[in-house]
Design a protein around this nucleic acid. Structure first.
Lengths: 207, 207, 207, 207
DNA sequence: CATGAATGAGCCTTCATTCAT
DNA sequence: TATGAATGAAGGCTCATTCAT
């Protein structure tokens, strides 16, 4: 017995952390990062400012965590989406379908606003955005799988290593998304991204 | 003599003010209000912080001016739009058409982001948002014209004064827009606004 | 039975306290008091912050204890030193010898840095420095013995009570030491203290 | 005329900055860096906390500046000292003399305390200590001159490039100084440094 | 005895604003 | 008009301390 001492304090601590996370997520969705004060979050959670720092290293760290979670969630969506496609779908079609799904996620659930914030933060360097930039990110893995299979099956060709190709694809996405951010709303991400991917594919398709 | 010296100083002053205005407009479009510092604006304009206050009373005053200008521009669009409609179009149709146009402006050129900022500011009260709230705003006048004519022609009816009716309409718009802001992007402003206006019309239409 | 259970808890507690004490002593020697955090001490001791307060009332209390211990150790050194002097050594010589020994301890093992901290704390009043200031401190007793014997033997004379004389001597030491602290390293404590004591002695020596 | 508008404000600004610098220098000499608050400095200067940041980027930046200035001053002393030595003095003797001078400066005017702070800061990385670490620091240049001349004249020999040799020498000094800091006052910097340099010289002297 | 979540006073820093020049 | 030193109200963060477990 006494096998699983729940330790009320630890449980409450975890609850507090979760509460802070959720309040922050909502507030950051409704207002800009800089408009949300730590005290706004802690006041709503019914604790003091200091307690915030028991659970999160800093405001930036919390934002970074939020971004990382969103990123990971998006990647999970992309992965699940790829698994629904027929296994024999040609790689170019898969790429276009994935492109559409990604732009849907970005323009849909994620939103240009969050995208802007993330892009600003990546530029500012004040917040850890490794989750977005890291080459081990699932997104890179997914692209790698698609491109690698396409090349193997002769549907695609490339003179450069698949790893490099993958990075070029993601970089292109980043470029298009950036344009979207700075030209929003005068920029059709979905259409522009589709066009761009088509261009990339045609450039690497065997004649 | 010396009657109309072009007064280079004055000209340059106006130019500086215009420059500040335009830089501010762009920066505020690209970043959140609180992320843009006065120095960001003046640095880009090549002048010092102090000079900003020669041209604008405060940061909030500039934001208020920006909002007022945007509002006025939007109202001008609505007015012009109404003038393109056939004079004999029934009031309900005019209202629905105007609704569509407004939501187009809001979702299109103005954007949810600015809308949020404006709504936040109206709530915060730190910035003068009279241009948006004032009952003499052109938007109220336009609605007044449509409703008044509709009632006069028997296409609409109402037990309350047209002035009050107008305010109810604008309030309804405000409510729908607010929902749009806080539920964005999971809220179809255009569709929801159309539905709401239809409800309002049916509720006040003679059988 | 169970008469003298070694009470492992108590033993371990004492060990933990000793460990904390020693770690604190070292850290305070290597860094300034305010740079050392409770967590630095407890982390190194392998316990948590809360446990610190089981053993010490506060950070200041620990510092006070450290100071008191150092003070007491110094006084023990002075006492032992006095006992090594020939019993018939004239009081003026004893005073000069004691002076030299004290300045040796201060400039040697104790150090100007700790001295400064102690003096700051006495001024700040946030830490209990009774051990240093208290007139019952061994240092006062020692001076009292020397002065009293000197007077009794006719080697010294004074119009004021020995108690007052003792306090003047210690105050003089305090003054010289303070000068040392704020002028360090441009102040030769040993030389200045010797000079000062010589002055005090000559002023109270019978012609 | 109007050739040199002194611009009272600019002058006063410079004076304020100088005042802050001097007050800071004194306070940092008398207390530890973390015990000195910006407000202590600005209060004494008769200005507000905010004004501090008009003149210095941050507390750390001020400390870095102080360190850089001290470093540069020390290097100037070393350089001047070298120039007083007879031009025909053998390199080993020059090295020993320079060593003695350096340890005099460190143990004398600079002090172990400041040294500790600098070493702590170099480790902590919160403060810019480039002035101390940079390989272009005058100290490296001086050692380079001595070693290079010694090798050229056959008084020294080395299998490694002079640049590397210089770095080894400075690193050795750093090591010895570090020992001094952590073992202070039970470590005779002067003696230990002399011994160490003698060892280094014997290791590189031609037989 | 020990834990660690929570507190709250206090410090560093930012930035809109003022004002003497 | 323009300058830039100075102000002061916040906001982010730290850390000694408390207390329920």
């Amino acid at each position: 017995m006494r096998q699983k001492k729940p330790d009320k304090r630890k449980v409450q601590g975890a609850e507090t952390k979760k509460k802070l996370y959720e309040i922050a997520e909502r507030l950051f969705r409704e207002h800009s990062y800089s408009d949300v004060m730590i005290e706004d979050i802690t006041d709503e959670a019914g604790i003091t400012k200091g307690a915030f720092y028991v659970h999160f290293e800093s405001k930036d760290a919390l934002i970074a965590l939020l971004i990382a979670d969103h990123t990971s969630r998006a990647d999970t969506i992309y992965k699940a989406f790829l698994e629904t496609l027929p296994p024999d779908m040609p790689a170019p079609n898969v790429l276009l379908a994935l492109t559409e799904r990604i732009t849907e996620v970005l323009t849909g659930s994620f939103g240009c606003d969050n995208m802007k914030k993330v892009y600003q933060m990546m530029l500012a360097g004040t917040v850890d955005t490794e989750a977005v930039k890291n080459y081990n990110r699932e997104l890179y893995v997914l692209f790698h799988g698609v491109l690698e299979r396409g090349i193997r099956k002769g549907e695609l060709k490339s003179t450069m290593p698949v790893e490099a190709l993958v990075r070029h694809f993601v970089a292109a996405f980043r470029g298009i998304s950036y344009e979207w951010c700075i030209r929003y709303p005068d920029f059709d991400l979905k259409e522009q991204a589709a066009q761009h991917v088509r261009l990339l594919i045609e450039g690497i398709q065997p004649r």
